[in-house]
Design a binder for these strands. Structure first.
Lengths: 295, 295
DNA sequence: ATAGAATTTTGAAAATTTTTTGCACTTTTT
DNA sequence: AAAAAGTGCAAAAAATTTTCAAAATTCTAT
């Protein structure tokens, strides 16, 4: 009896190959051999039996079965089927090179974003998310702090929480941060965003907020980062560690997605308010727009 | 011939299924049984072994193999693979509901992000991207303007362009925007971010920038939006129109990805600078961090 | 029409191929 | 050095294909 093949939900992108990339780190020597072959000869595999493939990539059948399992399929057959189903057989995320066209880079950035989101999907804890949402939904005042690109996340979050009916504000100036959090009190929430989880000012802000009786939430990419010690809730997102050096990019997107999810939840909790004011907000924003035909 | 093969007058967008219909006339009783099943339960077959399918349509394995051959495949395996390849990739975007867990919402947000990115990938123009990158790479000063969540995109872009060695700054305050763009001159670039493409202040800023001789780039979700009339380059991203109303979310992510791609390109153009200063930036940022073990 | 030969189609079971599992061995991690 | 994880061989299981005799169909000659 063949088990049901993995259900594909959502998007048409090659789940299987994506999965290969995601799991690559946790593979051993032989499995990587196979994974490499998979990535570079995706098309060919459909025509190969497990035995043929095994000898082609210099490994054993057993390893291929195990690889298939690791990728989330019940066996080699199912993996093959999954590969066949993904119409586009493009390989995921080759590195960005300076000879790439802007569009090619864009495609790679997108792929990277997928990976980052998938990875975050795995590492983030459902319970922590829920707790964070609960705290935010019942919070009095919410102060969000972050620096650099984390400031952008904090800002975005504040923006959305505001729309969700919260009393939220973000600060990217360290002095303002200190001032803002020092006025927090019990029932309020401070949210610290820091990729490294070790930015002095952000850590200090949460510490201070906590000492005032406020609850604290951190969004970070490092599991046992200093910031977690001052946080009631830790939201762990994808790390950038091994990614393209100078322009740290995609974990940012993952963090935004986390923020989105939280804000949705909070918005639902405040549903009544949204209906009343949120929609009004939208229409009042419209008056800020120029007429289509003018100018 | 009384037996008609297809009740679903629909289509055979599927090579294999088309073949089934073409061959139907020349089949015998048992094969037709199988063919009927194929046509009506196409999706299911992927999960079935030949034995299971045989018993499901009340025929023998041998018949199925013969059917496969008749359709032009080497055997049942190959038929299944062919069916998988042609299978329709239904892309379901489940709506977010207020009963969803936070994690479930997160998953949906991710799926939505994928869709948004894929859509953007299709609508954005490679040439425009390239031109935008060229303008930015050779720009003197770069001013980015946006409001609301578009401000976040502008900010993020400024952030990255800075790291890529550009003289870039973003403004989210409309007065500051006016001031900033009015000092631009030939060789400078103004970037306007506006989802609707119709925010008065943003449109005005680009218009002003242009009148000073600067080049203008817009990032927007509407093809013939007012803002495009004042832009030398238009970067079109996914629209939010038909998405979850109040919390506008994912086109934001698409725009960030576009920005990422641009910045990469610019960074490569400035490669020498990055090597010298960019990496130094990273290490100088590290001094802002707390020691791992402390506090 | 109709018996019966010829042909085609069919399915049970055997043969084969492919996939999976069990287990001893090797490598890596702690 | 012990524990854990990964690997490949070979046996077992499963799935597919082939074989072949029986059943159904078609054809032909009464």
């Amino acid at each position: 009896m063949m088990k049901k093949y993995a259900e594909k939900e959502g998007v048409a992108l090659n789940r299987a190959l994506l999965q290969v990339q995601l799991c690559y780190e946790s593979m051993g020597r032989a499995e990587r051999l196979a994974a490499d072959y998979l990535l570079s000869h995706t098309e060919d595999i459909l025509a190969l039996t497990i035995t043929e493939l095994a000898s082609l990539c210099g490994t054993s059948e057993a390893t291929l079965v195990r690889l298939s399992r690791r990728l989330g399929y019940s066996g080699y057959q199912e993996l093959k089927l999954a590969l066949a189903q993904d119409a586009e057989h493009r390989t995921v995320t080759p590195n960005i090179e300076d000879s790439d066209s802007c569009y090619a880079i864009f495609e790679k950035v997108c792929n990277d974003a997928y990976l980052s989101l998938e990875r975050t999907k795995r590492m983030i804890s459902g319970e922590e998310l829920e707790r964070a949402a609960a705290l935010l939904a019942s919070a009095g005042r919410i102060v969000l702090v972050g620096l650099g690109s984390s400031a952008a996340v904090a800002e975005e979050a504040a923006n959305k929480l505001l729309r969700a009916g919260c009393d939220a504000a973000s600060y990217s100036d360290t002095h303002m941060q200190t001032i803002a959090v020092s006025y927090l009190k019990e029932g309020d929430v401070a949210v610290g965003v820091s990729q490294s989880g070790a930015s002095k000012d952000i850590v200090e802000s949460l510490k201070l907020a906590r000492s005032r009786g406020a609850s604290t939430i951190c969004i970070t990419g490092r599991e046992r980062a200093p910031i977690t010690r001052h946080s009631d809730v830790t939201l762990l997102t994808d790390t950038e560690e091994l990614r393209h050096t100078v322009l740290a990019l995609n974990s940012h997107i993952a963090r935004l997605a986390v923020v989105d999810a939280l804000c949705f939840r909070v918005a639902y909790a405040h549903e009544a308010l949204i209906m009343a004011s949120g929609v009004a907000n939208e229409s009042s924003l419209k008056t800020k727009r120029v007429e289509e035909e003018s100018t």
